[in-house]
Design a protein around this nucleic acid. Sequence first.
RNA 1: GGGAGCAUAGCUCAGUUGGUUUAGAGCAUCUGCCUUACAAGCAGAGGGUCGGGGGUUCGACUCCCUCUGCUCCCACCA
Length: 882
Amino acid sequence: MELPVKYDPSLTEEKWYAYWLRNNFFHSEPDKREPYTVVIPPPNVTGVLHMGHMLNNTIQDVLVRRARMMGKNACWVPGTDHASIATEAKVVAKLKAEGIEKSDITREEFLKHAWEWREKHGGIILEQLKKLGASCDWQRTKFTMDPDLSQGVINTFVYFYKKGWIYRGVRMVNWDPVGQTAVSDEEVIRKETPSKLYYLKYFISESGVPSKEYLVIATTRPETIMADSAICIHPEDERYKHLKGKKVFIPLINKEIPVIEDDYVTMDFGTGCLKVTPAHDINDYEIGLRHRLPVIDILDQFGKLNQEARILVGEDRFDARKKIVKMLTESGNFLKEETYSSQIGYSERTNAVIEPRLSLQWFLKMEEAAKNALSYVEDERIRLIPDKYKNTYRHWMDNVRDWCISRQLWWGQRIPAWYLPSGDFVVEPDVESALKAARAIDSTIKPEDLKQDSDVLDTWFSSWLWPISVFDANKPGHPDATPNDDLAYYYPTNDLVTAPEILFFWVARMVMAGHEFCGDLPFRNVYLTGTVRDKQGRKMSKSLGNSPDPIKLMEVYGADGVRVGMLICSSAGTDILFDESQVEQGRNFANKIWNAYRLIKGWNIDENATQTPQAKVAVKWFDELLSSSIETIDDHFEKFRISDALMLIYKLFWDDFCAWYLELIKPQQGAGIDASTYNATITIFDKLLRILHPFMPFISEDLWQNIGERKEGETIMLSSQPEAGKYNPDFLADFEVVKDCIVNIRGIRQSKGISPKEPLSLLYKGELGAEMISVIEKMANINSVGSISDKGADAKGVSFLTGSLEFFLPLEEHVDVEEELRKIEEEIKYYRGFLENVMKKLSNEKFVSSAPKAVVDMELKKRLDGEAKLMKLEELKKELTK
RNA sequence: GGGAGCAUAGCUCAGUUGGUUUAGAGCAUCUGCCUUACAAGCAGAGGGUCGGGGGUUCGACUCCCUCUGCUCCCACCA
């Protein structure tokens, strides 16, 4: 069968993925082998694959496939996250498009729609991962809202409540009036936003009556003046000494409020008089707490003014702002406005301007958990890669705040707290136990009297259990329970691959949950990927439209090509500037591999042929090179230098194997190859494929299946990673010298315009085995090799030095003596400079006495080599000028 | 304002406890090649003194200080 000149991924990828699935190769069950476990960072259930996922999952697959080939029982657990805010937002939008408002339907109806949405879209991202080649154990696919996982979340809540770590409290939260929920600080994006600073007059009260005197405050939010509880001045502000103990009137509503003193106020900002609005500003809230000020909340959940405002009731906060400025102008309280730019918080999900709002929320105490979580990283039981993130991690843990775990949403695990008519509440895992507990408080309670809290839990409150609950959903909330077989075997997991942005959100919290429920770390290594950016360094985002569609990319370049493109230039923790040319490079590499295979496959074995000397050296050389390379690759993986490992493999295959090895063993045109070389080559190729497999699973499987006799059920996936054998570094170095000689000769040909097809003769001086000479003959097209001592007295040619060897190409008609002289002069100059440097060191007393012996010896050797080179160059120069 | 990090060839990055022939790779560029596996290719070549300045050291891309530029995180002045 004729193989096409170009590798076509579309013919192999689907085929082999189906084969792997059919044979259940990805599935893992506990056994006697050492486990290697990875849990996927669960993508949003309604999400679609983006470039960040591609990078992240490619790395995981490389690690998992390699571990599997190293004899470990590899288990990569896939799954999705219910992502309450994002998913609920999508469902709300979808219903709206159908003319249904969330507020018009019941919770149950809404959840039905949400689950339908999940059924329809929930599998997409996992299907996309299959295209990438991800070797996940799909039978273990989990969803953070699977019934058993949800129960685990509920149990966890009950557990921490009973432990006293969960409490209910009034807190200033970041309220998203569009999403209708509180969002965490981390989900608020601050953006520089142009606004105005309004200067307003507050008239001073003279025994309950406004006087003509006034003070001036500056505010960006005039619509909140009705919620003012006080005016605050700095205790040391000389300008306002006369205001101490006075009261002032809020404009328009003429309400009397006190002037208080607090050093929170910055004297030189604005007017130095601050209006204190405890209900609508976090700092004001804290001042309010200190001075026991009343909290007047004038905004409703939609960001509209409520009855408390007295005026402009029902107006949206931004409309109210415009209107009140007008009203203040009319009332004579408006002084002036200035343009002003400030950092305004926006909701990450809905982009609505965040409203600081007081509300009753559930919190989880973090102090003790954070201490534990920090210790695992501090003493390196958990390794962060790169370790610079230790600083960030420590900073987070040292400044941790209690975690607001309630969300005013429907999509998620509903908080298991039931309220009695009396206002008391009980926290229990289910309604039956809640009833029982409630009756302990009030024996007359009937089931219909109990009202469950309407909030759901923060999504992270389920994902922090992920490494535990995917194996044993009963364990969270039950630290004393005996772990099931899966958990006992797979936990702790090995490596976690994720983004640094969620180091705190997710990684740290998993450490906390792992410590609490399993008494152990959840993973040993955390590999933090960089952010995928475009060529200009911008984050890839939907709104910018600068992210390529990964599926299309894989269609054009092949999954293997894309995988290589993503990894070739991305070390841990550094952002990768994505450029399609890298993916092109990956595709080209796949094609190179394909064509190497075509070449080998095209050879006929000639049973009568004997191994050429070149082939003999080539096999020996490549075997040893392979061993030394495997050692380096292992080392790279040990240190998670994945792109280094890939680059090494890339060069090993392309340069060493294709450009040198294959060229050396290539039989004469039309001739067959001897069996010994052929078999050795197949063995080498087989090893190369296995080394390539974690990075390029499809093409390596395809060629591996073809290169030998395979039966159904055999796969490169479950073969092994080649191990390093013995090698002789001196031999490898000698071979490099020979390569250098060949490159020299080729370069001379090019500069003299001598065709590679024209055979040349070569003279040399030094020690060079017959087999090495044969390599030079073949690779540089040399037809006769002699000793330099046989060179005729007037022979014209080109000399060059490599290693400790001296070569001479007799090229009578091509030689330009002037030019040769110039080149030699240049080299002499270089070595003089070089020697000068070396001598400077060696003649330095202190260097010789204080540097390690090995370093001094190296310098001595450099000196000897340099002097020898220089001497030869001087000789050559003399000959030329003679 | 607080904290962290980065600055090495045109581009993207290595440079692993300061010493391995006066800095490496890939891509891109240039030159010559359709050489019977591959033009998604082959062969060859050029290109940086390691952001600026100072210091420590026998020795600094590597450690310290400082300046400049950039990035990220945290907090945020009404």
